[in-house]
Design a binder for these strands. Structure first.
Lengths: 128, 128
DNA sequence: AATAAAGTGCGGTACAGTCCGCACGTAAAT
DNA sequence: ATTTACGTGCGGACTGTACCGCACTTTATT
């Protein structure tokens, strides 16, 4: 149960970004060509799964996300960590830093964030 | 084309960890109950997709990963970043740090790694 | 009230993913 | 050479995903 299929995830992204939309609007923002029909198939599946709500306004339904981007992020991150980093967040960080995805600026930013969070730990999990 | 399906990814994990195994061995390490038959279905799919090689030893085939864990990591990370962090690695880092997944020790480690990579950038991507 | 435009519900096809049984091959043991 | 144990190949069933057309409903327009 990988939370979302490819198409479903696309829709969630668009909705997370724009907040509330009707099918035709989502269709316009969709990253590839798709008919309104297909799009609405996804929408009703997401509705069934409980990831979306909708309510009528005018003659169309407007869809709104019920599942938070944040919680999806965590699930995907957990999966990634489990699958490719043997469940270790440390390995994840190492991979991340060695992955060439980070620019010089990112590294400095990272250091800054780490120091800030280190000094003022608002949500740090205790390990010892 | 999400690279691997759930079942396929499980097998890749096991193989990444143990290096080379025959079906019966993989089956034992599989995280849930599955028949040898089903398992082998996955294996032949992975073989077709080119993610695995196999060669006979005794009367059984031994399977070995052809696709690297590292490259899978990158693809999954890209997808995660795109889907939940608007494509920004910075946001990914923020999410990560605020996600309560990191312990105090992790943060210190993070700072250490960041400093090390900062001083000796072996694979840093230029941004400016 | 008739029409046009916009939107919905429903159903349907095609293919991928998951799961399995069974007949056949192979190699060692008797 | 026959049996037994282990392993493989093949094909099948069932479910989910991706995708779409069409008939119907609703609202605004004239």
């Amino acid at each position: 149960m990988p939370e979302f299929t490819k198409g479903e995830l696309e829709i969630m992204q668009i909705l997370w970004k724009h907040g509330e939309m009707k099918p035709a609007e989502i269709q316009e923002h969709f990253p590839w060509e798709i008919t309104n029909s297909s799009l609405r198939s996804y929408l009703s599946i997401l509705l069934d799964k409980g990831h979306l709500t909708r309510h009528r306004r005018g003659k169309a339904y407007f869809y709104r996300p019920r599942t938070k981007q944040e919680s999806t992020f965590r699930k995907m991150l957990n999966e990634l960590t489990r699958a490719c980093c043997d469940g270790s967040v440390e390995k994840l960080l190492c991979h991340l830093i060695r992955s060439e995805k980070l620019s010089e600026d990112d590294l400095l930013e990272l250091k800054r964030i780490a120091e800030a969070s280190d000094e003022e730990p608002t949500s740090g999990k205790e390990k010892s």
